[in-house]
Design a binder for these strands. Structure first.
Lengths: 358, 358
DNA sequence: GTTCAGCACTCACTAGAGTGGAGTGCCAGA
DNA sequence: TCTGGCACTCCACTCTAGTGAGTGCTGAAC
C-alpha cells in the first residue's frame, strides 16, 4: 500500500480544477486508490481495500456505489460480476493526468544515474546502448533509445579510401561527430591521385551542407575517370542522406517484458514488435507528435501493444531535438517512476551529448 | 534378425561404426524414433509410437525393454513412472552425432536465401543485422550473428577531423572496410595545419599495421602542440585496438524464444542472457574452440540456457575466419534444419563478404 | 439527498473423488 | 531372444461441493 498523505491528493485535485475531468473529489480519490493498488498488486481491487485510502473515509457500501459510477463512466472495469475493479485505459489516463504525484527516483536510482554518467565513456552509439540498459534497470521496463537524426548536421569531412583495385570507401564525418560510410564500386581502376582529386572535389561540393541537401549536380573536371568517381561519390552521399539511414534504435531490457506479462503470447507479440526498428521509431515519433508523453493501451493504435503503455521523452541538445527515450511496460506500470527516470536520464543524456568531451 | 527396410538408417548406423557409441542397431533406431517424435510433438513418446518406425519392427514389449536399457544408459528420461520417454542431453547428442540425416532447406527456404543475398545491400553492419533476421525466419530459432573481428585488418587510412575548438575526431579505415572512430579532447586549441600535420604523422606511423599492433612510441616533430595531438591520437588508436571494441553481435528473432518455451521464466532468463553481448560472444567462441558445432543443454555450461541448444557455424572469407553464426533454440529444436540453414547462410555470407562490391 | 448496515447473490478458485487412458514392468511361453 | 498378456501406475480430465471475496440493492438514519 503506497503511503499517500492527504494534502497531496487535495493538491492534485485542486490542480485538476473543481471539476477535474468530471470527477468529484471522492471519486477521484477512489480512482486513485484503485489504480495505485492495482499497479502494486496486479489483482482486481475491491471496495474494502479502498475505504482506508486517504480522501475516501466513507463506508465500503458508498465506495461500491461510487465504483459503479466510475465503471459507468468508463474509468473502471470489472473482469466478472463478483470481482473487484480494474482500471481501464481511460482510468489510467485520468490517473496520469490528474492524480499521480510527480515521482522521483529513490536514492539508489539517483546514485545509479550519477555513477553511470560519471563513468560513461566511448562513442555515442555505445553510450546510447548502455543508456537503454540503465533505464531498464531503473524502471523495470523495456527501454528504447533513439539516437539523434543527422538530418541537419553539416558535413565536416569527406574522404575516399581505396580498399581494392576497383573498390573505394566513402567516409563522411558530420558536425555532430557521426561517421557514415558507403562503399563505392568503380567501373575501372582509378589511381590514388585521381581518387584524391575526386575526394577534394566532393569535399568542396558538400562541406558545410547536411547530407540531405547535397546537390546532385557537380561541375565536371574534364577528366573522364575522375568525373565518374565524383558522380558515384555524389550518388553515395545522397543515398546516405535518404531518410531511413538516419536514426538508430537501441532496445534494452526486453527480458523485462517476460516479467510483466504472464501470458506467453503477449510476450511474443510484444517482442515481435520490438524487433521491428522502423515500427518502434515511428511509434515513438507519432506519440511525441501528438504532444503526449504517455500513451496508454489502445491510445497508440498498435494492436499487439494494447496491454502496454509507453512513456516518451525527447532528448535535446541545447534546444535542438537530438533523440528520444521510450519506456515500454504493461499498462499497470509505475508511471511516476517511469516519467521521473525518463526525465532525469533524458536531461543528463542531453547534457552529456552536448559536452565537447566524448 | 530384424529386417531393416530403410537404407538411410543403415547408412547412418554404418557411419557411426558397428558399435556407434555403444548402441546396437535397434536401440539406435528406437532412440532415433523417440528423438524425432519428441522434437515434432513435444510430448513424451511411448513404446507404441515407436514400433512402426523404420529399423524397429519388434513388438512394443521389446521396445519397452530397450527403452528401459536406453534409460539406464542415460539416453532417455522418464518424467514419471507411467509416462513415455524424453531424450536427455546425451540422447540428443547421440542423435546429432550418429543418427540425424544431414538436413537441407526446403524449396521455400532456398528461395528466401537466394532472394536475400540477391537483394542484400548496404554496409556490413546492416547486412549482418538482416542476416540474423533471415536465419530466425528460416529456422524459427533465435539467431546470433557475430561480425568479423578487425584484429588483423591493416589500417588503410587515419584522419583527424576538427569538430570543435578543442575537440577532434579520429577516423580510422581498415582494410576490410570497417570504420572506427574515437573523439579526442585536446588540451589546447590546435589550428588546421597542425591537425593535418599530426594526421599525416599518425598515418605514417600506423598505415598497413593492424590496430592491435600500433606502437605507442612515436617520433617527436619538435612542435609541442602537434606532438600532443599525435600522442593523443596514438592513445586513441591503441584504445580502439584493445580487445572489447572488436566483434559486434546482432541478435535476431528473440521473440522465437517466447514460442519455444511455455514457461515464462525460462523465456525471461534466456532473454536476459541474450542481452549480455559479451556473454553471448564468449559462449559462441567457447563452443567453436571445443570443436563442436552443436552444444546441447548443459554442455555449454551456461546454467540459464540448460534447456537450450546452440548451433554454431564459423563464417570464413577466403579461409580467414570472419565471424560466427549461432542459432539458439530449445534442446528439442530441429537440428538438421538448423545445421543446414547455418551452413548455407554462413557460406553465402562468407562469399558475399569477400566480394569487393557490397 | 447522502450515507450506511444488512442481506442475498454471483462467481472464480480450490480441494477431493472418480474415471479413462496411455504408458510401464514383469513374466511365462514360443 | 522375442512376444502377448496382465497387473499396475499415475497423469489429465471431469464433476461436485464448499469457500470467500466481492457485488448490487434496499430501507433506515442522519
Amino acid at each position: 500500500m503506497p503511503t499517500t498523505d492527504d494534502s497531496r491528493i487535495d493538491d492534485s485535485l485542486d490542480a485538476a480544477g473543481p471539476d477535474g475531468g468530471g470527477l468529484d473529489a471522492r471519486k477521484a480519490a477512489i480512482l486513485n486508490a484503485v489504480v495505485s493498488e492495482y499497479i502494486a498488486s496486479a489483482q482486481p481491487v475491491g471496495s474494502q481495500h479502498v475505504v482506508d485510502a486517504p480522501g475516501v473515509s466513507v463506508s465500503s457500501a458508498t465506495v461500491r456505489s461510487d465504483m459503479a459510477a466510475l465503471e459507468r463512466d468508463g474509468y473502471l472495469d470489472q473482469p466478472h460480476t463478483s470481482a473487484g475493479r480494474i482500471p481501464t485505459d481511460k482510468g489510467y489516463r485520468f490517473f496520469v493526468d490528474h492524480l499521480a504525484r510527480p515521482g522521483s527516483l529513490d536514492a539508489l536510482g539517483r546514485q545509479q544515474v550519477r555513477q553511470f554518467f560519471d563513468h560513461a565513456h566511448g562513442e555515442i552509439e555505445q553510450m546510447l546502448e548502455r543508456t537503454s540498459g540503465l533505464l531498464a534497470d531503473l524502471t523495470d521496463c523495456t527501454a528504447m533509445v533513439v539516437g539523434p537524426s543527422h538530418d541537419s548536421a553539416a558535413i565536416r569531412s569527406v574522404q575516399l579510401v581505396a580498399l581494392g583495385p576497383r573498390l573505394a570507401l566513402l567516409v563522411v564525418v558530420l558536425a555532430d561527430g557521426a561517421v557514415q560510410k558507403q562503399s563505392i564500386e568503380l567501373a575501372e581502376e582509378v589511381d590514388e591521385a585521381r581518387l584524391a582529386e575526386a575526394a577534394a572535389r566532393l569535399a568542396a561540393h558538400s562541406l558545410g551542407v547536411p547530407l540531405t541537401r547535397v546537390r546532385s549536380k557537380v561541375a565536371a573536371t574534364g577528366d573522364r575517370s575522375t568525373d565518374a568517381v565524383i558522380s558515384a561519390g555524389v550518388r553515395a552521399l545522397r543515398s546516405l542522406g535518404s531518410a531511413d539511414a538516419g536514426e538508430q534504435l537501441f532496445v534494452g531490457g526486453s527480458s523485462r517484458m517476460a516479467v510483466a506479462f504472464d501470458a506467453v503470447d503477449t510476450v511474443r507479440s510484444v517482442l515481435t514488435i520490438l524487433e521491428q526498428q522502423l515500427v518502434v521509431v515511428t511509434l515513438l515519433r507519432d506519440i511525441l507528435d501528438t504532444g503526449l508523453s504517455v500513451a496508454i493501451g489502445s491510445e497508440h493504435g498498435v494492436e499487439p501493444l494494447a496491454s502496454c503503455a509507453i512513456v516518451v521523452m525527447p532528448v535535446s541538445i541545447g534546444g535542438e531535438e537530438a533523440g528520444t527515450i521510450g519506456l515500454l511496460g504493461p499498462t499497470r506500470m509505475n508511471y511516476p517512476l517511469a516519467l521521473a527516470a525518463a526525465r532525469v536520464v533524458g536531461d543528463r543524456l542531453g547534457e552529456r551529448l552536448s559536452e565537447p568531451g566524448r
